[in-house]
Design a binder for these strands. Sequence first.
DNA 1: CGTTGTGTTAACCACGTGTGAAACCTCCGG
DNA 2: CCGGAGGTTTCACACGTGGTTAACACAACG
Lengths: 235, 235
Amino acid sequence: MTSDPVLCVPSCEGPVRKALEVTGVTPVVATSGRLNEVASLEPPDGYAGAVINAAGFPFTEAMNLCRQLRHRDHPVVPIILLLDHYQLDDLTFREDLFDDFVVGPFDVSELATRLRHRLRRAGNESVAARVEHGGLSMNLETYQATIAGRVMDLTYMEYELLRFLATNPHRVFTRETLLSRVWGYEYYGGARTVDVHVRRLRAKLGEENAHLIQTVRSVGYKFGASTDYALADDD
Amino acid sequence: MTSDPVLCVPSCEGPVRKALEVTGVTPVVATSGRLNEVASLEPPDGYAGAVINAAGFPFTEAMNLCRQLRHRDHPVVPIILLLDHYQLDDLTFREDLFDDFVVGPFDVSELATRLRHRLRRAGNESVAARVEHGGLSMNLETYQATIAGRVMDLTYMEYELLRFLATNPHRVFTRETLLSRVWGYEYYGGARTVDVHVRRLRAKLGEENAHLIQTVRSVGYKFGASTDYALADDD
DNA sequence: CGTTGTGTTAACCACGTGTGAAACCTCCGG
DNA sequence: CCGGAGGTTTCACACGTGGTTAACACAACG
């Protein structure tokens, strides 16, 4: 389960797109035409929320869309409206049709915060900070890692090492760099320690995914599938 | 609509007062001093909502106040925060402590709309006044918890800790985080306190449900049975 | 004054972690 | 084609950090 889709109507551009990216959800644009058309369309399966841009559009159309989304789909899916300031009064007595709203000009961080707020309140856990690469998925909040859908039972150091490698894919790190970055700057230990932890990680990744951590002979290790050019990294 | 009192902290002036007047509710000022003082005061009887001005105030104090309002008083009473823009990031992972927020400079009609929105919503579909997870059920109104149908006789701190963990399932919390979120931001005590309370909770959960609180070694604790995958190695 | 709740201290124990040595691989020179 | 050297993988074991547990101290409350 990667990031859940969020329905965007009628389009997803500018601050809205940025806010969705920051939040870590994938936008799904329903249409680029009139709001009315969306209601007749089939919304994406299992979308976690909806952002409806009513600014500059006929207000009743937006409300109709809200009603249809609420009625047809799950009433728990949060709906966020983007409004012009003059549309604020129109919301009265329609409080049940939406969950939150933002008044233009739209601020990226405010919109992102509201998105995260509503998604979390709806019991959605997909907004958690994650690291995704290959078949590997690491949830930074639950300290859980899955490889090809299978849960990996990682120890603390294994998790930290894998997280560092996976957040900097395709880059080669020397053992000394890994020791200082993962174990700590003041750490002083043998370089063999890294080898052993890499070995344990490869074992837990499984036979077919062991190659996700690649050995660069006489240099160090890197994360990521092969045929990727490596950038040496020293700091 | 109603003229129920709305708690204002630390004061009610300028746009806030105007917004409350427009909405048609009567403001009740709790204090004009530091946010900390409010927690020890007795909130007005049957207040329908709270507006907390955190702009320009220490953020932890505002969060502490939210926490106390939520825990000690009715968890369904909507809380609206007034924030400076730079405080937006601090809201992350604290989504359960408030219901809405406004970023300064404060617009009267937007604030009024949000107030009306939350007050209406609180009447109809209240915020989850009940936490259900696994065989655990916690009634936030009556302060009662049952596990697998059996009533648990929890003390105050045990209840608060279990409630916090259960409302954020699967997420790992360090002992320091738990101390600040459950015991209070100003609390300063040994980290082993958490361990002992977890132990007492596990004892009261019973042998077969003790695993609902999981230890993440050298990180902290988390609530929730290990996900439907087979993480249970050997029984 | 007993009772109950809460936090601290220390002993115990388990498991994660680091280390050394040996086996293994890979690249080059002979 | 062979052999050795430098580098890597693998294994087993010992140490120490960190979690559990129980017992105690003390405050709150009746």
